[in-house]
């Protein structure tokens, strides 16, 4: 079945089984490999991405669900290395990744969290992100999310200021 949707700001069309998980569509049909397979049961969060601005675990989301919708993966979070998303910048500032495999899912969850809770506490972060990391980057992830929130606020203030000028 032909399914049309938007991926990282661009229109796309795939012809696949409508039940195929979005994870495999993104990875193997669209060749965007940042979104990871971890458990296949929506438990580990390695496959987290955004659909119309909400977070989803794409290993357990049939592609037909995103028909006509807008999907963002980590590849679409920033334009390029010179214009990083606050979350990516904070991940670099706090030297977060170890093996790095779970990080795309964490970054996508974090990017959503700081839009809902612009100034999250440790408790907000701990209560709202249930992804799994085996290397033990947890303390740095928490620090990086708080830093990303700060970067986001500074950026917002600057752009608000510009808008007023």
């Amino acid at each position: 079945m032909k399914i049309d949707f938007e991926i990282n700001g661009k229109a796309t069309s795939v012809d696949v089984d409508p039940q195929m998980p979005l994870l495999w569509v993104v990875r193997d049909e669209l060749n965007l490999k940042a979104t990871k397979y971890g458990c296949g049961k929506a438990m580990c969060g390695a496959c987290t991405l955004h659909v119309d601005g909400d977070i989803f675990r794409s290993c357990s989301l049939a592609v037909e669900y995103v028909s006509g919708k807008s999907v963002t993966t980590l590849e679409g979070l920033s334009k390029n290395e010179g214009h990083l998303h606050p979350v990516q910048q904070a991940w670099i500032d706090e030297n977060v990744p170890q093996c790095g495999y779970c990080q795309p899912g964490f970054m996508m969850a974090a990017a959503k969290l700081i839009t809902v809770i612009p100034n999250p506490t440790d408790q907000d972060i701990k209560a709202n992100i249930s992804n799994i990391c085996r290397c033990g980057t947890h303390p740095r992830i928490i620090k990086a999310i708080k830093r990303a929130a700060q970067i986001q606020q500074t950026t917002t203030l600057i752009s608000d200021g510009k808008a007023k000028e």
């Binding site: 490999k33 979104t35 990871k36 993966t73 990516q88 991940w91 030297n95 990744p97």
Partner: peptide, 17 residues
């Protein structure tokens, strides 16, 4: 800092899978 930060925060296809 780790020298593999950029590929890891940009989600580059660096893993076997």
């Amino acid at each position: 800092k780790r020298i593999d930060l950029i590929p890891k925060v940009m989600g580059k296809p660096i893993f076997g899978i």
